[in-house]
């Protein structure tokens, strides 16, 4: 199992050919209170970089992009009634969708934890 990070502040936890995707703690801090999440439906095919989910704070809507290509297997059902789960536990219970990977080599485009920490530090 490995965790990778995108420049759009998504994390992807890979376990074999399946993965769980969410936004980082840094991203939820930037967004503030999350009030609505639109999760994708199971069965949807997504391309790397495609708009796949929407996370809305009081102020604005933010698109969540698929960090890799594949098929959605589940959206997090908890987020419909408890969108603030993303604020409380962005990198755990606040996951947004699960997917299968169609091209595992795309993971090489993403950052590991150390590289992501440096990336965020560069944004401050």
């Amino acid at each position: 199992m490995s965790v990778k990070f995108s420049k759009d502040h998504e994390w992807i936890r890979v376990d074999g050919n399946t993965a769980t995707v969410g936004i980082t703690i840094y991203a939820q801090e930037q967004l503030g209170d999350v009030v609505f999440v639109e999760v994708p439906e199971a069965g949807k095919q997504v391309e790397q970089g495609e708009e796949t989910a929407v996370v809305e704070s009081v102020k604005a809507a933010s698109e969540i992009f698929a960090p890799v290509s594949g098929e959605i297997t589940a959206g997090n059902p908890v987020l419909e009634d408890e969108p603030a789960t993303i604020n409380a536990d962005a990198e755990g219970e606040g996951w947004i969708f699960k997917m299968t990977l169609s091209d595992a080599s795309q993971l090489d485009d993403l950052m590991d934890a150390a590289a992501y920490v440096d990336y965020v530090a560069g944004l401050e």
Partner: peptide, 11 residues
């Protein structure tokens, strides 16, 4: 735009 309490709490 907000303080540490956040927009919901401030509202």
């Amino acid at each position: 735009v907000q303080y540490p309490a956040g927009i919901l709490s401030e509202h």
